[in-house]
């Protein structure tokens, strides 16, 4: 973001940090819960729509019509980068602590991509790159169980 300090120095005012911190609790429902359960098992699942298209990560509804979806199906742990961007200045809470690529990764067996991190050098990143999921060693059933994707060597 462009920086342009145009603060008027007309009068000095008080200032203090305000920290908003909370461990929000989210109930998952059966579909998101199944996806997170699969992550805990080191796998991926998706959900099939009426046309047989597989959405991964799965959602409870057809994204176009809102109709309920129920058929959960397995999805592979390798896939392809559809498009990507480079994250040079990493912020707290992001999947990796060093620069990485954000990518839309379409897993084998899925028809829609998911957004996640790819741990690869900037110069390696290219659309069409084959990547593989890297899971955490200790998994508890959360998005943290999936650390990132890595190039398939």
């Amino acid at each position: 973001m462009p920086e342009e300090a145009t603060t008027s120095g007309e009068e000095d005012v008080l200032r203090a940090p305000l920290v908003l911190e909370y461990p929000f609790k989210r109930t998952t429902g059966p579909v998101i819960g199944a996806f997170l359960t699969a992550l805990r098992e080191g796998r991926f699942i998706g959900i099939e729509d009426d046309q047989g298209k597989v959405l991964c990560p799965p959602v409870e509804y057809d994204p176009a019509s809102g109709a309920s979806l129920t058929k959960l199906v397995p999805v592979g742990s390798e896939g392809e980068v559809l498009f990507w961007s480079w994250n040079q200045s990493v912020r707290d809470g992001q999947p990796l602590d060093h620069p990485f690529a954000w990518a839309m990764v379409k897993l084998d067996g899925a028809d829609t991509p998911m957004m996640h991190a790819v741990d690869a050098p900037h110069e390696v990143m290219v659309t069409g790159l084959r990547v593989r999921a890297k899971f955490a060693e200790e998994r508890i059933g959360s998005m943290d169980d999936l650390l990132c994707f890595e190039p398939v060597s």
Partner: peptide, 24 residues
Amino acid sequence: PYYEAPLWPTSVDIAALQARAAIQ
């Protein structure tokens, strides 16, 4: 809140993905 927010992607990160798609 389930799939993306835990990864803390910023508005710039998401815009950059869209820009790549548009360029491609």
